[in-house]
Amino acid sequence: MDDLVKAIIKEQGQIIGLDLAIRLAKLSGNISFSSDSVESLKLQGDPRAVLDSLLRSYSDVFGQTSINVCIDVIQRFPKQEVMSVVPDYVKNKLSAMVANTPNN
């Protein structure tokens, strides 16, 4: 879960700047940092709630476009690892994407 959140913050950082990405992660309410580095993050509370509030925080920037960036990151992680922690609105999109892949 820590790795997933770090990856999302770093990916958002590529787009909007790492300072703002970290700031928005802090402002989501469930993530704290002991330094300016993404690696120093600490998650607080239910993982599902953490991810949900993080995605909502980033959705303030570009709306669904920002959520799509987070979804692209989530897709890089093993399905069994992430499906239990992603919000339902993301799970539906992930399921639809998996269903549309050539192997299925």
Partner: peptide, 14 residues
């Protein structure tokens, strides 16, 4: 190709 998904606070700026 961006208008469908584009929202948030930056929509107006864009």
């Amino acid at each position: 190709f961006s208008k469908k998904a584009l929202g948030g606070i930056l929509r107006k700026s864009v």
